[in-house]
């Protein structure tokens, strides 16, 4: 009974997530149906033209001659069995293609998130200590710039800066052509990761530093901060232990809500920096009218966002004990 009661909400969540993913799949499918352009024409175009007969044959081969709802039914059935179809462009199973690309995107998104939360929170908390001080104003100005500059523009600027003026970071790809082995292999990836991460993280650094500033200023005015000071704790402990743990709560909430946006940002950044992830693949698939691949990417991103939300929920509970179930 006890375990059942514990299981039920979790089970409900999984069901909810599943329903949501299915809804996303259906919606994406219908959206793409409405988009202009015909994949067969693109394929034919790449082949350098083809006869009417061949075109009709291709249509039939890909099932594109069937009514839309019928196509949807087939697609849903396959998705449920883990079959995301074949890429029109690569002629390989979409699932394989995506699984190859997921690690690069997850790596980029997580590093950007990590940097954004770390730098943003630190800058915000720092400026909350003396809201009228010079340091605080500098943080405010920088975050305003970061907030209003478009992602691709920042990317271009960094690209120009590090490609020609000060070439210390690679500006394209995830690995060097001649892959080093051992530890150097990871260092090489890290080296490539720097610019895309900064570009993607910039807006969130700005965002979280403002959020952290507001939240820390509020927390620092709370009674329990006065209690911590009255205990004789050094100011560092008061701020980085007592205040920060509370000040983080709205940031964690925001991270969960913004993960989808972050992923959208990754599409741009991956394209600018030629990063071999899902985002660049999405962009290329749109150009190629590679709908099965695009649908697969959209499905994957929905799942990734949901996993991110789940993780945020867990983090949230860890930080704020009031969110945990009352102990028995």
């Amino acid at each position: 009974m006890q375990t059942l009661r514990k299981l039920t909400p979790a089970f409900k969540r999984v069901l909810e997530a599943f329903g949501l993913v299915m809804a996303v799949v259906i919606l994406n499918f219908l959206l793409i149906q409405m988009a202009p352009g015909d994949p067969v024409e693109v394929i034919v175009g790449e082949m350098g033209g083809a006869s009417e007969e061949l075109i009709a044959q291709l249509r039939q081969q890909y099932g594109l001659d069937q009514p839309v709802l019928h196509q949807l039914g087939i697609y849903l059935g396959k998705v449920l069995t883990g079959d995301l179809g074949y890429s029109y462009y690569f002629n390989t199973p979409v699932l394989d293609l995506l699984l190859q690309r997921v690690p690069a995107t997850v790596l980029l998104c997580l590093s950007a998130l990590f940097v954004a939360v770390l730098v943003g929170t630190f800058a915000g908390a720092f400026s909350a200590r003396k809201p009228d001080g010079a340091g605080s104003h500098i943080v405010t100005v920088i975050s305003l710039v970061g907030y209003s500059a478009p992602v691709f523009w920042i990317g271009m600027m960094l690209l120009i800066l590090f490609a020609s003026v000060w070439p210390i970071f690679p500006v394209a790809g995830m690995q060097s052509l001649r892959k080093p082995s051992g530890f150097a292999y990871y260092l090489d990836i890290l080296h490539h990761l720097v610019l895309p991460t900064i570009t993607l993280a910039m807006i969130y650094i700005a965002y979280y530093s403002r959020l952290a500033r507001t939240s820390m200023i509020e927390v620092l005015g709370q009674d329990y901060i006065r209690t911590a000071r009255a205990k004789g704790l050094p100011e560092n402990k008061v701020i980085w232990k007592h205040a920060l743990r509370n000040g983080l709560i709205p940031i964690v909430t925001m991270v969960g809500l913004q993960f989808g946006q972050l992923f959208a940002g990754a599409v741009l950044v991956e394209t600018v920096f030629n990063w071999p992830g899902l985002g660049r693949l999405a962009y290329e698939s749109i150009l190629r009218r590679d709908y099965p691949t695009l649908l697969g990417i959209l499905l994957f991103s929905a799942v990734l966002v949901m996993i991110a939300n789940l993780l945020t929920d867990i983090a949230y509970r860890r930080i704020d004990p009031r969110m945990r179930k009352a102990r028995t």
Partner: peptide
């Protein structure tokens, strides 16, 4: 001052509901 606070002189506040930090035991 920090060496005195909480050690030689300590203080109890009016609002028990808000004077303890909610995220620590």
């Amino acid at each position: 001052m920090r060496a005195l606070r909480g050690n030689d002189i300590s203080m109890i506040f009016q609002e028990p509901m808000t004077s303890l930090n909610p995220v620590f035991t």
